[in-house]
Design a protein around this nucleic acid. Structure first.
Lengths: 135, 135
DNA sequence: CAGGATCCGTAACGATACTG
DNA sequence: CAGTATCGTTACGGATCCTG
């Protein structure tokens, strides 16, 4: 079995941290590296597994499956497995998932808008912290 | 020196992932475990280091320092170090930081509102995935 | 094709000790 | 007080192999 990793098992979530509020976990799931991208992709339309994998790019099968399961468990993603050979599974957003996706997408858009400012701030910071050679 | 961990060194950020867009990093910083809590706390008022540490609770010195540095570097947090003995350092939000804090706090609030729904969804999911003993 | 199981490296994190 | 340096752990995440 070995249901480790992230938070597949609810009882294990607790010991990740002694006192982590549930909202923190939700936040973690929807803002995770691949969670954001999955939600963003599904905002447009539904996707099949491999399709989604190509769309996102750079995600391993394992992480995509894991991300999708977490989001499905939280009620953000609907999984429609058709009993055909070869298997066909479509993923789409639930209503709750759409809300989530819009929220994080909004945040992502905001982040993109601020990239310039942030990069500038970093440049300033890095120069000020530089070895400076001699003082 | 050993400036590993998270993203203190800009040149290292790139190899965390071959192709990670800058906005992803910003998102990572502001939605990180302690990043959210730091921003939320500073939304009310400015804090000193240890004060902030107590306020948040459960954060190690190392992680708090690291989180604050990351946020400062991105231009979200202003660090005001007064040259006195004993040292006194006040942290506050910049204008950009206030925007960020409001964004993530909005997301956090949304997450809190959905805790009930998510928990319910998880319960349904977990039951449906249960061993079921015999089918 | 959709994913489960397993192995493994690395880096994130926490605890502790130490410094200006 | 406000951090930095070091160490140990663990769990995140990727690669690979395997199955219905």
């Amino acid at each position: 079995m070995a249901v480790r990793e992230e938070s597949a098992d609810p009882k294990k979530d607790a010991n990740v941290n002694q006192a982590m509020c549930p909202s923190r976990l939700i936040l973690e799931h929807v803002t995770s590296r691949w969670g954001v991208l999955v939600l963003a992709a599904l905002l447009n339309r539904s996707y099949r597994f491999s399709e989604l994998r190509r769309e996102i790019g750079g995600v391993s099968e394992k992480m995509l499956a894991q991300t999708l399961q977490t989001l499905e468990r939280d009620g953000f993603v609907h999984r429609d497995a058709k009993p055909v050979i070869p298997p066909r599974v479509d993923y789409s957003l639930t209503e709750l998932g759409r809300e989530a996706a819009e929220q994080v997408w909004g945040l992502a858009r905001w982040a993109e808008k601020q990239v310039g400012e942030v990069l500038a701030a970093r440049a300033v910071y890095d120069v000020s912290k530089e070895p400076t050679e001699r003082q």
